[in-house]
Measured scan of single mutants.
Amino acid sequence: MAEIKEKICDYLFNVSDSSALNLAKNIGLTKARDINAVLIDMERQGDVYRQGTTPPIWHLTDK
Results as ranks from 00 to 15, higher is better:
residue 1 M to T: 13
residue 1 M to E: 15
residue 2 A to C: 06
residue 2 A to P: 07
residue 2 A to S: 12
residue 2 A to I: 08
residue 2 A to W: 10
residue 3 E to V: 05
residue 4 I to K: 10
residue 4 I to T: 09
residue 4 I to V: 08
residue 5 K to S: 05
residue 5 K to N: 03
residue 5 K to G: 03
residue 5 K to A: 06
residue 5 K to C: 00
residue 6 E to G: 09
residue 7 K to A: 07
residue 7 K to M: 12
residue 7 K to S: 05
residue 7 K to R: 09
residue 7 K to P: 00
residue 8 I to D: 15
residue 8 I to Q: 11
residue 9 C to E: 13
residue 10 D to W: 08
residue 10 D to S: 13
residue 10 D to A: 12
residue 10 D to H: 13
residue 11 Y to Q: 10
residue 11 Y to R: 07
residue 11 Y to V: 07
residue 12 L to Y: 12
residue 12 L to W: 00
residue 12 L to M: 01
residue 12 L to C: 00
residue 12 L to S: 08
residue 13 F to Y: 14
residue 13 F to G: 15
residue 13 F to D: 13
residue 13 F to T: 15
residue 14 N to W: 06
residue 15 V to F: 13
residue 16 S to C: 09
residue 16 S to T: 06
residue 17 D to A: 15
residue 18 S to F: 01
residue 18 S to Y: 02
residue 18 S to Q: 05
residue 20 A to K: 03
residue 20 A to F: 08
residue 20 A to G: 05
residue 20 A to Y: 00
residue 20 A to E: 10
residue 21 L to K: 13
residue 22 N to K: 06
residue 23 L to A: 07
residue 23 L to T: 06
residue 24 A to Q: 10
residue 24 A to I: 03
residue 24 A to F: 03
residue 24 A to G: 04
residue 24 A to T: 08
residue 25 K to E: 11
residue 25 K to L: 06
residue 26 N to G: 13
residue 26 N to L: 06
residue 26 N to D: 04
residue 26 N to T: 06
residue 27 I to E: 09
residue 27 I to V: 10
residue 27 I to C: 06
residue 27 I to A: 05
residue 27 I to D: 08
residue 27 I to P: 05
residue 28 G to F: 01
residue 28 G to P: 09
residue 28 G to W: 00
residue 28 G to Y: 00
residue 28 G to N: 05
residue 29 L to A: 11
residue 29 L to C: 11
residue 30 T to G: 12
residue 30 T to Q: 12
residue 30 T to H: 09
residue 30 T to P: 10
residue 31 K to H: 15
residue 31 K to P: 13
residue 31 K to L: 04
residue 31 K to M: 09
residue 32 A to N: 09
residue 32 A to K: 07
residue 32 A to C: 11
residue 33 R to Y: 14
residue 34 D to Q: 08
residue 34 D to A: 09
residue 34 D to T: 02
residue 34 D to H: 03
residue 35 I to S: 07
residue 36 N to H: 14
residue 36 N to T: 13
residue 36 N to M: 10
residue 36 N to F: 05
residue 36 N to P: 04
residue 37 A to M: 06
residue 37 A to Y: 05
residue 37 A to L: 06
residue 38 V to Y: 00
residue 38 V to F: 00
residue 38 V to D: 09
residue 38 V to W: 01
residue 38 V to N: 10
residue 38 V to L: 09
residue 39 L to P: 06
residue 39 L to K: 11
residue 40 I to K: 12
residue 40 I to E: 15
residue 40 I to H: 09
residue 41 D to C: 01
residue 41 D to A: 08
residue 41 D to H: 01
residue 42 M to G: 05
residue 42 M to S: 03
residue 42 M to E: 09
residue 42 M to Y: 00
residue 43 E to I: 00
residue 43 E to C: 01
residue 43 E to P: 01
residue 43 E to A: 02
residue 43 E to M: 01
residue 44 R to M: 09
residue 44 R to Q: 13
residue 44 R to T: 12
residue 44 R to N: 12
residue 45 Q to A: 14
residue 46 G to E: 02
residue 46 G to I: 00
residue 46 G to W: 00
residue 46 G to D: 04
residue 47 D to A: 11
residue 49 Y to D: 08
residue 49 Y to H: 12
residue 49 Y to N: 07
residue 49 Y to V: 14
residue 50 R to I: 01
residue 50 R to E: 06
residue 50 R to Y: 00
residue 51 Q to P: 01
residue 51 Q to H: 11
residue 51 Q to E: 14
residue 52 G to H: 09
residue 52 G to Q: 10
residue 52 G to F: 00
residue 53 T to A: 12
residue 54 T to L: 05
residue 54 T to R: 10
residue 54 T to A: 12
residue 54 T to P: 02
residue 54 T to Q: 13
residue 55 P to R: 02
residue 55 P to K: 04
residue 55 P to I: 03
residue 56 P to D: 05
residue 57 I to V: 11
residue 57 I to F: 02
residue 57 I to E: 09
residue 57 I to P: 05
residue 57 I to L: 08
residue 57 I to A: 08
residue 57 I to Y: 01
residue 57 I to R: 11
residue 58 W to K: 08
residue 58 W to T: 09
residue 58 W to Q: 10
residue 58 W to G: 10
residue 59 H to P: 04
residue 59 H to Q: 10
residue 60 L to N: 06
residue 60 L to T: 03
residue 60 L to W: 01
residue 60 L to S: 05
residue 60 L to C: 02
residue 60 L to I: 03
residue 61 T to V: 10
residue 62 D to W: 05
residue 62 D to Q: 13
residue 62 D to H: 07
residue 62 D to N: 05
residue 63 K to F: 09
residue 63 K to G: 05
residue 63 K to E: 09
residue 63 K to S: 07
